[in-house]
Every structure is written in C-alpha cells, then in structure tokens.
Design a protein around this nucleic acid. Sequence first.
DNA 1: ATCGCGCAAATTTTT
DNA 2: TTTGCGCGAT
Length: 740
Amino acid sequence: MSIYDTLNPEQKEAVLQTEGPVLILAGAGSGKTRVLTHRIAYLIDEKGINPWNIMAITFTNKAAGEMRERVDKIVGFGSESIWVSTFHSSCVRILRRYIDRLGYENNFTIYDTDDQKSLMKEVCKKLNIDTKIYKERAILGAISSAKDNLVGPEEYEKSVMDDYGRKKIAMAYTEYQKELKKNNALDFDDLIVKTVELFQSCPDVLDSYQERFKYIMVDEYQDTNTAQFKFVSLLAGKYQNLCVVGDDDQSIYKFRGANIGNILGFEKVFPRAKVIKLEQNYRSTKTILEAANQVIHNNIGRKAKTLWTDNEIGEPVHYRQFMNGYEEAEYIAGDISKRVREGECEYKDCAILYRTNAQSRMFEEKFLMANIPYRLVGGVNFYARKEIKDLLAYLKTVDNARDDLAVRRIINVPKRGIGAASLSKVQDFADQNGIGFYDALQRADEITTLGRAVSKITPFVTFIQSLRSKLDYISPSELLKDIIDETGYVTELQAEKTEEAESRIENIDELITKVVSYEEECEANNEEISLSGFLEEVALIADIDTVDGDDNRVLLMTLHSAKGLEFPYVYLAGMEDGVFPSYMTIVSDDPTEIEEERRLCYVGITRAMKDLTLTCAQQRMIRGETQYNKPSRFIREIPKELVDLGKNFKERKIKEIPLPKGYQQMKKAIKEPAFMQKKFEVKKASSLSYDVGDTVKHIKFGTGVVKSIIDGGRDYEVTVDFEKAGIKKMFASFAKLKKL
DNA sequence: ATCGCGCAAATTTTT
DNA sequence: TTTGCGCGAT
C-alpha cells in the first residue's frame, strides 16, 4: 500500500494528473495542502522529476514553511531544492538577479506602506497637489490597483480622458515611479509588475526560468490578481504544467485587486485544463460545516458546490449576545479559562477572530487580567514601529546609497540640529546637479547657501561612510550594534525612564535577536550573510509568518489573517451589523461587497474544527463613540436548529442608563430578533431581456451599456457602464434593468 | 531648530 | 480612543 492510497478518489486524481494545466476547486478543509504535498512527492518519487524543476507558490511565508516541512516528511530526497515561496519573495529573488536589465541596481530597496506614503507626500508637494483634497492614501490606492492590473503610468495617462482628479493621479503615478527609480526602490506591487516586465522584455531570462520551473503549483489561487496571474502564466507558458488550487467561496481580497476571473476564466486561458473538485471536508463537524454552507448559500455569484463531511455532528454552534464589548471579552476569556481548567483543551487550540484589528484591545485587556497567554497577530507591524524603522533606515542607508527616503528619515535622528530649511537647500543642490540626496550631502561644503549647517552635516556623512567601509568585514548584527552605540539611540531611551521607552528598548533587543537568528540561519543553510539579504527578509515578513504552533497561547487575529489556518475552538467576535459586515459594505451600492463580507464569514466559520462560538454586543465603543448595533445578518443565515442560544440569553438587563441620543437606535438593537422567521427568496429570471452590448436603463443610475453578464447560478451578475454613474455591478433580479 | 499644544481624522481587510 | 499634523512660542 502506497501513501497515495490514503487519498480519496478526487484527491488522488489531482495528485496523479501531473501533466498539463489543472484547476483544483478545493473547498474549505478538503485537504488541499495534502494534495499539493503528495503531488510534489509523486512528481519526485514516482515520475523522477528533479526537485529543482518544481515551484510551489503560497500566500504567506508561514504556509510556505509548512508546505516545505510536510514535503520533507514524505519525499525521500532533495526536497530542499524545491522552490517554495510567496509571489513576492519569488519575484524578489528573480529581480535581485536580473533587475539591472530594467535599469535598476540589483541591491534595490523595498518600500513598505509607510515609505510609500512619505514618498507620495513629496511627490504631491512637487506637483502642487493639495493632499487635503487628494489624500496620499487614495492616490496610492489608485496606483496600486493600476499596478495590480498591469496598467503602467503611460497607459493610465491615456485612459484618464478629461477627468480632472484622475489626471492628477496620472501625474502623481508618473512622478512616483520616477522617484522610486531614482531611489532605486520598489514598492510591493512593483515586485510583481517589474518581474512581469522583465520576462516580457528579456525572452532569454524568461526562457531560463521556464526551463527551470517545469512544474508549477499555486495555492490560494482565488486571491491572485491580474499581475500575479500574468507572472505564473508566463512561467508556465512553455511546458504548461500549471496546477492551481483555490476556492471561489474563500476569495476575500478583492479589495486588493484579487481577480476572481482568474479562477472562472482559467479554462479560457488554458483550454486543455483539467478541472477537479474536492468537496469532502475533513476538518469540521457536521454542524459547523452545515452552518457554513447555509451562510455561503446566500451568495448569488458563486460556483455551485456543496461540501460534505463524514465527521460527527458535534456541538451546536454557540451564540451569545452581550451588553457591550467588555462583557463579550470577559465571557470569552472565562470560557477559554474554563475549558483549559477542565482539561477540555489547551490555549493553543483556541482562536479569536474579528473583523478589524481595533477589536483586539478589549481581549488583550481581559486576557492579561485572567492570566491567559495569548499571541496577537497583525495590528501594528513590528517592522513598522518607529524605533525599528529608524534603525532599519540606518541599515538601508548603508546598504543602498540611493535610498533618499531612508537618509532623510535618519539624518536628524538622533537630533543633529539639521532642520527642514537645510534639507531643502540640500535637495535644491541635488536637483540642480542631477545627483542623489546623499551625494549632495557628501558635497555639502559646495552648497554655499547652507552656511554653518555644513558643520552639522559633515559628521553625519563621515559616520555613514565609516559604517560603509566596515561593511566588508563586519556582520549585519555587529553593524547594527555599532549604529546603536554610536548614535546613542538606546542610551537616549534609557534616559527617558518611561514605560514607553522601555518597550521600545525591548523592541530594539528583539530586532537584534532577529538579525542574529538571520545570520545563524544563513550559516545553517550555507547561504551568504548579507545586509541586503536581511533587509529583504524583513521587508516581506508578515506577522502571521512568525506564529509558532508549538507555543501554547490563544491566538487573536483578524478573519483575513486566519485564512488557511484551522483551530479546534473558534470564537467569532463582534458579529454585528456595522462591524461585520462592515458599515462600508452595508451602505455600498455594490452588492458584491456584502458578498465578499459573507465569504469572509464563511472563511471564519470553516476555521473551526470542533466548536464554534459567535458573539456580539448591543453597544460598542468605536473610536470613542458608543454605537448600538443589531446582531449580524450572517447570524440569521444560520438555521436555528444548529444553534445553542445559551441559558440566560434573554435574562440580561440593561445596567446603564442609556444616552437619550442613541436611545431609539439602541431599542431597535435590543428588540431585533436574532433569527428571522422566514427567509425571503430571490427568484432568478429564466432569461434576461437584454444582452451584452445593449443599452439599458436603471431607476437610479440612468442609462448605460451592459458590459458583461455572468450566470451566478441563482442569479445573473450584470456589469453596466453608466453614462453618469460609471461602471457598476449588480444582480439582475434586484436591478430591474430595462432594455432601451 | 525644537518643543508642545490643540485640532482633525481615522478604522475594513495585507503581501 | 489614538495618532498625526500644523502652527506658534522658545
């Protein structure tokens, strides 16, 4: 009996189908990682494929690490040479080698969201764009989605027509890219875009990677965007051995450019594609799975499928409503304590999932009080903290002389008496002479307007130069210690003697630990230790990547972060309309947004293996204001036979005197029954009176042209380009469009 | 040049 | 509730 006999027939089919394009539609908990790892093992052990020719792309570094570990266990030999990584790290690896072909230097810097914002701020200043009207974040968002769709600055410019706002964005986009290049820097989106560009402009490079990666597998395929899809299709273009695994019901990153068309249209791009569905769930109890199925069933635009399981029925889904977020957190903390105390489970078996990071605070407080060990995932990224960014900016400055942003960040940290006035004089000099900011600093004595500020700049330049000269013979960790010592960064914090300063010092210590462990890892793998290598690792790390399954803590994270994970006990907190689904999606006129929230809910429910608890609060503090929310509409979508409502559900009384302002609203929130008696059904029209290309009229949006019609099973999703309102997506049965 | 105060905005999700 | 920014005082 071989290891492949433990697979079910569909899984086995997916494993054995090694040649040609394959689309695996894998429902939640259907064992897709198992399929992927077995597939890799089969390729190597049975088909004699060189591990070096295999590439597996996952969504997070954590998933990549886990896959590598699992492959290690079942593959006889050579699993270490399989390329397992994320889109972003794969692209960085390729670009480090070849980006000089696109006119960048190979030691480019990667800009995170903060860096992007600072850069955009400068760009706006330069172009006289008022950031009060056009927010940096909004501009960056537009640029990001352009990049996700492989629309470059030139093409964007052409598409703007005479829309004033978009014209501004086009200008900003062009200038932003120019600045990035000047700084020898790439933002996250660029990593993918530039790799695609590289492949398209250098056929020899593409060919070498096509020869290398003869077998390619992509996990979480539903969350890939157009650029990422282009990247894999180029790579797989020659041998066509591309296997993608995904679940349209778990697509939760549309807001970030994920293109569900990549799943739905896979067979169009790869006509020979074999499609395999995995519908048996091995993770959850019958009850949990049924709850998930019922919720997702309310989505109209989805591929029809129904998950089933042989697992036991298990506990009902628990539902509890509380007065406020405080009680909610208290209940969950108490519940977990009780379960652990009674030996039912361990801390690490439990996870609390919520919609927004801001919701974590309450749980942290309660867990600290109840002495429950927890690990918070996400929130303010470790590498985004001021002290860490400062020190990294030093490292970046030493590493990449052209990263102006990094230099500007640290030139006056610690205080050196160099202010904005001097900086702008230096910048003027740089612009006049067509040199970089740091180059200008080096020639500060030539800048006549600076006056006595020169005497403040020179020591800084000397300091950086001395660090650079050491680069060849000291390690990154020693360099970091040098920087800390010579700038007096930690000494300064120690002098403050505040709690905040303490925690900053702790963070700095942690950073040192991270550098050292990077070096150790390099040595263990016989890789070269380099400053660039460390900075790159740091730039692409996500918080979830550092979660260790062995340490016994309750996990706190957003629903998004929970994707791909599973836990025996799951608490979905903050199940309230306005929180989850979020207010933004409730008021949106795009019905697909609420569907994305529902998919998020589906992801949340299906994380649970044994036990699921849903909680909500009647009143909740949101940014200093008390809101009164109804229980989430998603709760009502779970059949009540599956739910345990708790004993004292209705006995709770209002303790506080409600504020008159929100009283009506609050009354509504309390009166609203959790479960609707009747579900109202949507009738799908058997056919539509209009077709793609027809001009139609909408009661609110006026006239427009039908761009596409997608049959979502229970209804049609129609995309219309309205003359006045622009492009809108809507469902046929709601929109009541009339053909003109 | 630096500090500190007060006002405004933000909170949907992340590689 | 927290963070970030601008402006005025030192």
